[in-house]
Design a protein around this nucleic acid. Sequence first.
DNA 1: CTCTTAATTTAGAATTATTCTAATATTAGA
DNA 2: TCTAATATTAGAATAATTCTAAATTAAGAG
Lengths: 139, 139
Amino acid sequence: MTKKPTALEARQEIEKRLQEAGIQPTAQRIAIAQYVLTDADHPTADDIKTWADQNFPKMSLATVYNTLKILVQSGILREFKLPHSDRVIYDTNLSHHFHFLDEKTGALHDIPPEELEIKPRNSKNWDIRQVHVVLVGRK
Amino acid sequence: MTKKPTALEARQEIEKRLQEAGIQPTAQRIAIAQYVLTDADHPTADDIKTWADQNFPKMSLATVYNTLKILVQSGILREFKLPHSDRVIYDTNLSHHFHFLDEKTGALHDIPPEELEIKPRNSKNWDIRQVHVVLVGRK
DNA sequence: CTCTTAATTTAGAATTATTCTAATATTAGA
DNA sequence: TCTAATATTAGAATAATTCTAAATTAAGAG
């Protein structure tokens, strides 16, 4: 039985991850990474800014964007856009998965890879690096 | 052996299609529809504006956007965004297909549905209306 | 410690794609 | 030919994101 990590332990875990990725673990970066990786659900930059305004002494919008860019570059997060909406959405990159967008509510759900079999009959033998799948419909 | 349609015939064909969709076939709309449906390859609104500036007496950017919106609403076109880029891309809706984005060149290629088998193990029995797939990689 | 340099953060301006607005022009139909 | 409805237009407004240049913070050498 694994103990649930305390807030401090979680923070230290995040800090370690940033360091391992060669990212200087500043207070702002730790806060953003912790929020996106543990609490948030497919947040946008704006969601993160709103959260920061309530949970961090002072953080500029530019820092939110800068930090997200760094986290994406280092592979800790991935970013994507939904087929229609305007905003970039951030997602943990821990496990490969697909997305289901509920037309009615706008809610975005993860689809684990086992739920969707994708077989490229890759006749052209292309080198495929990323597979983005968004199913749009109703529950 | 079918004859290749003349420019006039193509224009009339487009006009008929607009009328059937309940869209008033104005000169601007015919021009845009003809370009997107027969000549352009995954254009953005900006591509269409550039083309119009060179091939139509005078057309405002607002008309480009208005017309594209109407064509999408009527099902003649579909629109989507690539996972990373900023612009909406327009595509003919004639046949269901997927996309391959070449990381190196940025070129976007169609993938016919036979090339990619997608099997949702739809345990949740969701009603899926659209399937967006973008493979990103290199040729 | 303390100084110096490099890295980070910041506020606000700039940019980009798209939508809105209100006036003008065109079209369809009586 | 007139009228009402519809479409087009230029330019302003909006929204997400990026850029800029100055101020702050952190890291490492001595």
